[in-house]
Nucleic acid binder design. Structure first.
Length: 212
DNA sequence: GAGGAGATCGTCT
DNA sequence: GACGATCTCCTCT
């Protein structure tokens, strides 16, 4: 089912820092349907968040911050609304956004997007070929997974870790265009072994752009 | 479509 | 020195 028809960004609002100053479970739910945007000169990439997970800080055994503050995860302990980008399996980058007041390491992991704008650039970033009339399957391949969407948006740790996604001048932002998900599904987080049963993964029910 | 192997490196033990 | 908040490719069905 189509989730989006209006591709204009003129009526969108930049999400403010206060939005992220909350429990990651609330932030995750409320980020479903919002737009992740990357600006790069003339190029504009946008995707609608359809899958996201909450990580609860030092009390959450599955969180990167579980063992406390390190050089790697220090962004998580800083102010909310900042990008925490980590490198995993020697291959992939993944994008998180810090939540909660400074000192508390809660965050959300963006796991899948519905591509909205800039699909050809996303395909180039992914080193994939798109047909003249891209199929649903091709579009799904662009951003249906945390490693995939990071590559599609050219998100890396050296470039983006610590970036303020609420700043006007930021080239990486999250915007609200008024879209409302009709129904949200809750499930177990993907790919973790500790605290694996916690229902902290949130998806837009029925979206075809969810991972796996 | 499902399942398994390999890639490849930063981080912490 | 082990392993991870993943993905792709290959094989088999």
């Amino acid at each position: 089912m189509p989730l989006t028809t209006d591709h204009r960004l003129s009526t969108t609002r930049l999400i403010s820092r206060n939005f992220y100053l909350r429990d990651p479970r609330e932030v995750a739910r409320d980020l479903l349907g919002k737009l992740l945007v990357r600006r790069e000169g003339k190029s504009l990439l946008a995707g609608r968040i359809v899958e996201i997970e909450a990580y609860l800080g030092t009390d959450d055994p599955a969180a990167h911050s579980a063992a406390g503050r390190t050089a790697r995860n220090e962004v998580l302990f800083g102010p909310p609304g900042h990008a925490y980008v980590y490198f995993i399996y020697g291959v992939h980058y993944c994008l998180n956004v810090s939540c909660m007041p400074e000192g508390d390491a809660g965050c959300v992991l963006v796991r899948a997007l519905e591509p909205i704008t800039g699909t050809e650039q996303m395909a180039r970033n992914r080193k994939l070929k798109l047909g003249a009339h891209p199929t649903q399957r091709e579009l799904r391949h662009l951003t249906s997974g945390p490693g995939r969407l990071a590559q599609a948006f050219a998100i890396t740790r050296p470039r983006d870790n610590g970036k303020d996604v609420t700043a006007r001048k930021s080239d990486l932002q999250i915007l609200d265009d008024g879209f409302q998900a009709e129904r949200i599904s809750t499930s177990k987080r993907v790919g973790i072994t500790k605290a694996a049963e916690a229902p902290l993964r949130f998806t837009i029910a029925g979206s075809t752009f969810i991972s796996r």
